[in-house]
Amino acid sequence: MAPSSLTVGYVPGVTPAKWARIWAERHPDVPLRLSAVDAADAADAVRTGSVDVALLRPPADASGLAVIPLYEETTVVVVPADHVLTAVDTVTSADLHGEPVLIPLDDVVAWPAAPGVPAEHRPETTRDATELVAAGVGVLVVPQSLARLHHRKDLTYRPIAEAPGCPVALAFPEGPPPVLVEEFIGIVRGRTPGSSRGRAEPPPKRTAREKTLAKQAARAAAGKVARKPGPAKRGRR
């Protein structure tokens, strides 16, 4: 029996509202439930079945998961609104040299050689780190969506030119996806309603007789073109 609903997990910063709206338009009788999950717990939520599919930042351990890359976010640095780095539109790694950088325990930026000086204290969450940036303790490197999510009037952010992007992906259990998961994949990938499952039916094969008749029709049409008569001659009076 097919499931009667679909549960979609999503990590902070990812906004599934658009896809949920399209789902409601195409499948009004099948509820789609959105479930906010922490970035560190998203992969396990898919593995244990807490959610049917998740919009997450790809985990280092993707065992048991099928992962479809969706897009990459710009990596930015969050600074106080009066910080010297606000003088430019885009900062470089060199601009961060010597800056104390806060690295929260839920950090999602994979940048092994990140510039700056890691702060001794690691905040519990990105939200906590944002509070410390406002207090002047250091700066914070995050995906742009998280900078927007935790926005404060006394803070701003700037993109970092050489920073790696922060990917976002769709994950579901390994193996052929269930029908509803396949439908959601189609929506996220922008497929039209008629092709949302991405499995167009192949055209039916023609019989030998149909092929022969088609060839004869093609030859007859070609012969008519070759024998096309010229201007009609005037008859004798």
Rank of each mutant, 00 (worst) to 15 (best):
L6A: 03
V8Q: 01
V11D: 05
G13M: 00
V14C: 00
T15S: 15
A17S: 08
A24H: 08
P28I: 02
P28T: 01
D29Q: 13
V30P: 04
P31C: 06
R33E: 01
V37C: 00
V37G: 07
D38T: 10
D44R: 09
V46P: 02
T48K: 05
V53I: 08
P58V: 04
P58S: 06
D61I: 12
A62D: 09
A62K: 06
V67T: 13
I68S: 08
Y71M: 01
E72F: 09
T74A: 02
H83D: 15
V84P: 02
L85N: 03
T86R: 14
D89A: 15
T90W: 07
V91F: 02
T92Q: 04
T92R: 13
V101E: 00
L102Y: 11
D106R: 09
D106H: 12
V109Q: 02
V109A: 07
V109P: 08
W111R: 00
P112S: 10
H121W: 09
E124G: 11
E124Q: 12
V133S: 09
G138P: 01
V139N: 04
V141L: 01
Q144F: 10
L149G: 06
H150F: 14
R158T: 05
R158M: 03
R158D: 10
E162M: 06
A163E: 00
C166E: 13
C166Q: 13
A169V: 01
P173M: 11
E174Y: 10
E174Q: 15
P176H: 06
P176Q: 02
V179Y: 09
E183C: 03
F184D: 04
R189M: 13
S195H: 13
S196G: 05
R197P: 04
A200K: 03
E201L: 13
K205S: 15
T207E: 02
E210N: 08
E210R: 14
K211N: 05
R219A: 02
A220E: 14
A220K: 14
A222P: 01
V225W: 03
V225L: 12
A226I: 14
P229V: 10
G230R: 08
A232K: 14
G235V: 09
G235M: 08
R236Y: 03
R237W: 00
